[in-house]
Amino acid sequence: MERREAQWGFLFISPWIIGLAVFYAFPIVASLLLTFFDASLTGAERNFTFIGLDNWIRFFNDPMAWKALGVTVRFTLLVLPVGIFVPLAVALVLNSKALVAPGLFRVLWFLPYVIPFVAGIIGWLGVIGQNGPLNTLIELFGVQDAPLWTNDPGLIYPALVLMGIWGIGSAIVVYLSGLGGVPTELYEAAMVDGAGWWASLRHITLPMITPVIFYNLILGVAGSLQYFLVPQVLNGGNGSPEGSTLFFNIYLFKSFFTYQDPSYGATLAWVLFLITLGLSLILFGTQKRWVYYAGGDR
């Protein structure tokens, strides 16, 4: 009977298993195997040759790949703190009892998130453009030569971070749910002990929502390393200005499709995966030191 039930169970979940095998497992394994072959579509020879670790060695000697990795790391270091702390700060304000009409503000902060991101980016390009409202505002303060935000290597990252703030609605919602889960009796006890707002935040709120911060941190790291959509929409992935938006994922995409070199593109994809995995494991390794799970150790 149990065996029969199991068979029925497998039958019912078989679409999912087949989907997983065909659309995830197979491409993952195939892409790994591809890294050991020369499958370039260009050139006179039509070979699909086993080349061992050549693609991996090529990565270590590819200045453009390292440049793209450097761009991605620099941007991650800039965007990650903003992506973690700005939504946290907003969530704290939205969770405050002193705020009038908190529901309205929550909706307003979340609204941009539901707008297709590509449309949002195009809108932002108008805002930060040469003659856009941001520069008009800056000129009101007496700045004669308003900056070219998207064409200045020194300003492009702040511009990208600014655009990124547009999409923090999701993180705010996660923080709000975390803040809602902090037991109110802890605040009442702290108040009895004479703790003020700052002490409550530091000793109760932040420790209690560290799992949520950790969750956002993991997502933020993975998201930053895979940054693709904004530069692709911004300039078609051409890396301008001066290569400062040649993110690793853009280079990976170009290697696959623009340069018609799928085996090297697959290698770059695996490099990105290994870096993301490594950083995630490091972060998971640190969580014992700073993440508090009320239900016990994880």
Binding site: T42, L148, N235, E242, T258
Partner: peptide, 21 residues
């Protein structure tokens, strides 16, 4: 040589001509 990548680089990386003061 390496035409697709070279051409992409030439057309992508020469944008400073009209973007950099």
């Amino acid at each position: 040589p390496n035409y697709l990548k070279a051409r992409d680089y030439i057309y992508s990386d020469f944008t400073p001509l009209l973007t950099k003061k």
